[in-house]
Simulated assay, not measured.
Amino acid sequence: MYFSPKFAVSVFLSLAIGLSTLPTSSFAQKPPPPPKHEDGKPPPRPGDDRPPKRGGKEVNESKIDSGGSRQVLGEVWVDNWFKLYINGKPLLEDSVSIRTERSFNAERFEFGSDFPMTIAFEFRDFMENETGLEYIGSRRQQLGDGGAIAQFKDVASGKLIGATGGDWRCLTVQAAPADASCARERNPDVSQAVCAQTRVEVPGNWTDPGFDDSNWPKASVYSARDVGPKDGYNQIQWDSSAKLIWGKDLKKDNIVYCRASFGG
């Protein structure tokens, strides 16, 4: 079929005019995909019971005016929360609340201390109630798991003073549930036999240097694969002697007190 040059030009001009009248949105690029969280997953949709994002900075740094003849650098990572005592006196509490389900931050802090130095930790894993469970009422209802690691260095020399390991003494103060089947209960409550807790009373002077912890069990040591540490843990260069510790049961032990002394 033959088209004259005049006819072809007419068709071209008609197309050009028609296209110029189309809204610019017709040629816009497709909208970008929804943003993702740091773990690469899309944000939760309404009603999704995916666990919330972790709280707090990955490494919270601080300097504590505590007196003492030597300056010490402490570094701690805990799943989920800690309170630290030095020579019987409270020094530092985790900067992220115990009520934060996924608190995987670390703490780096400088403080003064006299030697010998007694280190006492109160470690807690997150639990919604005394059954020890987390995500209660959701499809993720489960036993949580703990884990803690800490190291202390001399600021002047950079040398290691001490670190968590199997020589520490750790007493489980609260453990629950009595049976893992509690996680399948529709309304888990500590009054149910499978959800019952075990509690141990501890003397008020357990943080003191002179406290006798010889009858406390030695700390259980775990691998990074056992604990699955993340976030702030990876921002600290751990000494090879620093180990992840907890009570004898990573999942059921929810409140653990641990002690050690150095520089004696």
Rank of each mutant, 00 (worst) to 15 (best):
D79A: 01
G232C: 04
I17T: 15
A183Y: 06
D79K: 04
L19K: 05
S138C: 11
G204C: 02
I119E: 05
N187R: 15
D253W: 04
K230A: 10
F111P: 04
L22K: 08
A193G: 06
R45D: 12
S261I: 08
G144N: 15
I161F: 00
S20L: 15
Y222C: 02
P52W: 09
D167M: 03
I86R: 03
K153M: 03
G204F: 00
F3M: 14
A176F: 04
C182K: 06
A28D: 15
G137Y: 15
A16W: 06
R108P: 09
F123A: 03
R169S: 11
D49M: 13
R169G: 07
C182W: 01
Y135K: 12
S97V: 00
Y233W: 12
K248H: 06
G165F: 04
D189F: 05
E134M: 14
K251A: 12
E134T: 15
L91H: 00
A193T: 11
L171F: 02
E38L: 14
A224N: 11
P42F: 09
Q151M: 08
S69L: 07
D48A: 14
A193C: 08
D249N: 14
D125I: 07
G137I: 10
A180M: 10
A120Y: 06
T172D: 00
R54P: 10
A260V: 03
K36M: 13
I98L: 14
C195W: 05
A148C: 00
N187Q: 14
E134S: 15
D208T: 06
Q237F: 08
F123E: 08
G55P: 03
Y257P: 01
E201K: 14
F3S: 12
Q141M: 11
R99T: 12
L143H: 08
V200C: 03
N60H: 15
D79P: 02
R140N: 10
D239K: 05
V256A: 03
S95K: 11
P90M: 05
M117G: 04
K36I: 14
W216H: 01
G166E: 01
Q235M: 11
P209Y: 05
S4R: 13
D249L: 06
G263I: 01
W168D: 04
W168T: 03
Y85H: 00
S4C: 13
K153S: 07
I64D: 09
K83S: 06
